[in-house]
Each structure stands twice: as C-alpha cells, then as structure tokens.
Design a binder for these strands. Structure first.
Lengths: 337, 337
DNA sequence: TTGAAAGCGTTACCAA
DNA sequence: TTGGTAACGCTTTCAA
C-alpha cells in the first residue's frame, strides 16, 4: 500500500499538500490539486485509517454489544445499526456479551484501546459505573442504564397491558403470564403490565405467573406444568415471542387447541411469529426502527450535535394473527357444532 | 487515558523499558519490572491499540462479511466466528453485503485501510480479482472463491442427494424441488443433487423444479402454483429451510396435510425448523462448526501457521422431524381408516 | 540491563 | 499557496 509520502513524491509536492487535497481543507492551487489527484489515482492510494485515528483520536468505528446475536431479536437490530452506520461511513464492531458483566467490561476496554467513537449497548447487566468509566458516547437500547445515558426503548408497560387487554377482549376468562428472567428489567415491566390488567380480578393469584427465562425451552416446560395444573387457563401472555412459541408447543402436546381453547400472544415481533402454526399474535416492537434511531442518536452524539430528545420511547404494535384470532375461534366452534 | 510516557515517568524509567515489560520481551530487571507494574496499575494504564497497530501494521481485528445477518443462517455463523475470535483476542467487524459486489468491495477497502488482519467472506458475489487485490488472509465460507482461497463448506451435492433419497425411502412417488437463486453456486449444486437422484425416473420433468430464491415468501408463491398444477406431488425438497417453511405454508393453504399427503424437507438446519408445525425435517449443516473452523483457519493464516487442510468439507446431517415422519404418516393413515 | 531515538502514516501548526 | 515539522502512542534497533 502506497503512503502519503509516495503520493507527495510522485506529485512533486509535500505531504502537507497531499493531506490538504485529501481532506479538502486549506488552500491548494488548482494545478497542484490536479497533480496530486493524478498521483493518487495513479498509485491507487488509500489513506491509512490507523494513522489517521492515532492523530485524531477517533476511528469512525462504533461498538455494538448485544447479549447474543443468535437471539432472533438482535439480528434485525444489528442490521439496522449497521445500515445507518455504513451509510455514514462508520464501521461496526460486534460483541456478544451473554449478559455477562465481565464480558461487557472487556469489550468496553477493548473499544477504548481501539479509539472506538462510541457504542450501542443492548444489554441488561451493565452498571452505570462501567458505562461512565467508558468515556465515550453511549446509547442504550432496550433498557435505561441511568438517566444520563441516552436510551431508545419500547413502552413495555403500556404495550404489555395492551396485550393482556387484547386477550380479555377476546373473551378470555383466566389469563396466565409466562415471564422473562427476574434480573432483566423489561421482563419485570412486562410482568407489571400484566398484573396491572388482571391483578384485581377475583380469579387472579400468583400461581398464574411462571418464569420462562426468555427461552423457548424453559417456557415450554413451565407452560406444560402450568396448563396441566390449571386447565381453566384460556389465555396466555408470554413476555417474549420465543417463550410464546414454547407455549404453543406445550399446548399442542397437551392437545389444547390454539386459539379456540387457549389464546396466546407474545411480545417483540420477531419474524419467527409468522412461521409458527398457528401464526403467533404479538406486540411487535419496531425493532429495525429502534436500531436505526439508536444509531442516529449515537452519530449525533459523536458529532457533538445536540440531541433533541435523549429518551426515545416507541410503542409496540398489536399484530393479531391466528393464535388470538377470534373469527378463527368462532369458525372452529362452528365446525364442532 | 494515560500513555506509556506517563507510565515511564511515574515509574522513573524510559518508555522503552515500559514497552518491554508490557510485551514481556527483552531484558528487564526484577526490581524495575516491579516498579513499572506498579505504575501501570496505579495509573490504570491500557496500551493504545491504534498506536500499536500503526507500528505493527496489524490490528487484532478481522472482518466478517455476510449477505444479511437477518437471514437466520448467519447469526449462528457469526456467533461462532465471534466466539473463537474473542477467545483469541481478536475483534470482529461485521458487514452486510446484500450480495452486492460494490458493497463487498467497499468493505474490503475499508478493512485494508484499518489494517484488519484478515477476513471471512460468507458471500457469493466476490470475484477472485477483488479477493486478491485484498492483500490479506481470507477464508471463504459456503463457497469456494477460487482454488487459492482456503474454504470451509458443506458437501452440498451429496447432502442434497441424501435429502431426496430420504423422500424416496419414505415412499414418495413424485418429488419436486424448490431451488435457490440461479446466481448462487450452492443453490445450483443442491439442485444438481436433486436431479442426480430423480432425473432418470420416468415421471421427472423440469416443471418439477421451481425457483424460490432462498426466500420464504417467494417459495410460498412458487409452491402454491406448483402444488395446484401438480397434485401428484407427494414430496418436496427445498433448497433451504426458509423456502421449506414457505412450502409448509402453501400446503396448509391448500389443505394438503404434511407429512401424510406431502413430505417436506429443507436444507441448512436453522433453529427455525423446530418451531414450525409440523416440525421441519432438514439436512442440517454444522453451522456453528463451519464458523468455528473458518475462524480457526483464519487465525492460523494470520499467524503464518501452515494450514494442514485449506479445504474443509463438512457433510450435512439428516434430521428427521415431523414433516417427513413416516410413523406419523402411518398413524395418520391409521386414524383415517 | 537500560535509554535514546527512529519510525509507523497521518494531520495541523507555523513559516515562508 | 506551499513546505517543514512536531505530534499522535507505541515498538524496536542500536548504543551504552
């Protein structure tokens, strides 16, 4: 790879001049500019980004840390982030934290050492201390780290309420909840939304809340027990789609027909929902948009622009599919009669 | 962030000495080493990776280019790559190419400018010229770029044959194929595998091959037409799982019962297969392993170790689930009788 | 065993 | 309008 020096030499000018035409600043005579441009194309010169970074203390690189890219929620998010970053000339470093604090910490130090310009953290185990020790712009996705960290997230509370209300509207009498892990903030909020809607009913008790740890497998097991112990349940709100899929499986194994004996709704809006049978209703977060917004905010932060709104709350949208389809329930009843 | 200079100063030694203890090479007296270590921890010093890169012309960073991280095949691959890279102290840059040659080219030049140490290319549109212009170690995944580029891939030919043979063994009489895009190498090979097995049968003609472009949607449409036009079809081999899911949907819409009226098998082994109904049989590639191997090969290449085998072929494994489950077919017939 | 200094490829300041 | 040069933070050679 040719360096700026060689370009200067073949153009017969100094490196300073080459640098000027490269960055398009300072005065450069029209003819010299021409000579330099020629030399550049002739040598197929590409500026060395590392040398630039060293001097400028920035790298046009950002870090994206997710718990696990294998979790279907994150590829779409990552794609959105990468799309806007790429468009703006930034490069994305990807890290899987598995929600482990030490992993996240390791990524952050690595990023500092590499002069990363900022980071997007889609993670639930980062403490404020670490984030502030990381002395660069950060945007949190999906969870507020603390009030000083710009955040983009979904309105988990009202959306989960809406999900449960949807089940109610369908005519469900006894609605259970398969919740996510207790150490995950949004899981707690979604659970709260559920309680908000059904907590005061006369049938409600805590036994209707079981933990599925945001995992399809675990939700399957929990739902199996739950549905066996409580045949009266005719609606389930799962804290995410993965768990809802587990619930669907459990119902099938128990010969419980969804939606007519049991309505099921999930949360997140991952594309998996369309491949299940019956297709899964869900409170769909605008995943791509979340990622896009986070990326745009981070860039503004990096470029020292003022953020108009450091907190960006989106609401999830009810997508009704077969797993809570009333007309489907009706026709099923019709068939039986 | 403190620099090596400050460390040297507080330790009362030269930067050269600090560098020596940092890299653990050259002679350093026991007592000086101690002093330096103290200073390092005292200042919480972290070496500047960019400065290092500039000097060493390497960055402990590799690039991973995939067509689209949103395609369920790639998160697992990416995860595998990231896992081994992370373990070995490398950082992963992620790029989505959308199979566009110019995007890929742009990523490669960016990577050169950043002194990336090598790249893993999971892509189908890279021409040899570009790859060789990129003057760094490269490992291809899923497609041989050319014989000089180390590659890890699945044995698409024999695996697709096995898939079709599986359908035959089940007793399928007329087997169709929903193939992937024509410009994608492995799609052609998988199609060839299908032809190898059924091409000589008396019922076969080209109308039984339709294109689904590796997309669930398009496969759905194609399958709809195919199944309507050819009710005699009782087995479908789809070129990937996504398309198989589309086929499943089409069958459902046409009230064709899988597996007893129509057996369906996919290819890839993405986790989606377990969430469909009926659960999808597939030729499962060892996706994680492919990624792992590619990553390990790349590291060997970077560290100038001799590759024992520059071509690594894995065979996909038949995973039989409900969509081709014979006993299930049997019991279904029993039920009807 | 240690230090001085050159060099990695840029940018930006100061002079000319 | 241009060039010389210090500086970015590190590694390594050479000398001491």
């Amino acid at each position: 790879m040719p360096t700026i020096k060689e370009v200067a030499k073949t153009a017969g000018v100094s490196v300073a001049t080459v640098s000027r035409v490269l960055n398009n600043n300072g005065y450069v005579g029209e003819d010299t500019r021409e000579k330099v441009s020629q030399a550049i194309t002739e040598l197929n010169y590409k500026p060395n980004a590392v040398a630039r970074s060293l001097y400028k203390k920035q790298s046009r690189t950002i870090g994206l840390i997710v718990p696990d890219i294998t979790n279907p929620f994150f590829p779409e998010l990552a794609r959105a982030v990468e799309d806007v970053m790429n468009r703006k000339g930034y490069t994305v470093i990807l890290g899987n934290s598995d929600e482990k604090a030490e992993e996240e910490k390791a990524y952050l130090t690595m990023m500092e050492q590499k002069y990363v310009d900022g980071a997007i953290l889609a993670t639930n185990t980062m403490d404020n201390e670490q984030v502030h020790a990381f002395n660069k712009p950060v945007v949190a996705i999906d969870r507020a780290i603390d009030s000083t960290v710009p955040t983009v997230f979904s309105d988990n509370l009202s959306s989960s309420r809406e999900a449960v209300r949807h089940l109610k509207d369908l005519g469900c009498q006894v609605i259970a909840h398969v919740r996510g892990p207790e150490h995950v903030n949004n899981a707690n909020i979604r659970c709260q939304g559920y309680i908000d809607v059904v907590g005061e009913t006369n049938w409600f008790h805590n036994g209707y809340i079981v933990n599925g740890n945001y995992s399809s497998q675990e939700a399957y097991q929990s739902a199996l027990t739950l549905l066996k112990d409580h045949p009266e349940i005719d609606g389930i709100f799962a804290g995410n789609d993965l768990m809802a899929i587990g619930v669907l499986k459990a119902a099938r194994d128990l010969n419980i027909v969804v939606p007519d004996q049991l309505a099921v709704i999930g949360f997140d809006g991952i594309s998996l929902c369309e491949t299940t049978f019956p297709e899964l209703s869900t409170m769909a977060q605008p995943i791509y948009q979340l990622g896009e917004t986070a990326a745009e905010m981070l860039i503004d932060l990096i470029e020292q622009k003022q953020l108009t709104k450091p907190y960006r709350k989106y609401s999830a949208q009810l997508i009704q599919r077969q797993s809570t389809n009333k007309s489907l329930i009706m026709s099923a009843h019709d068939d039986q009669s």
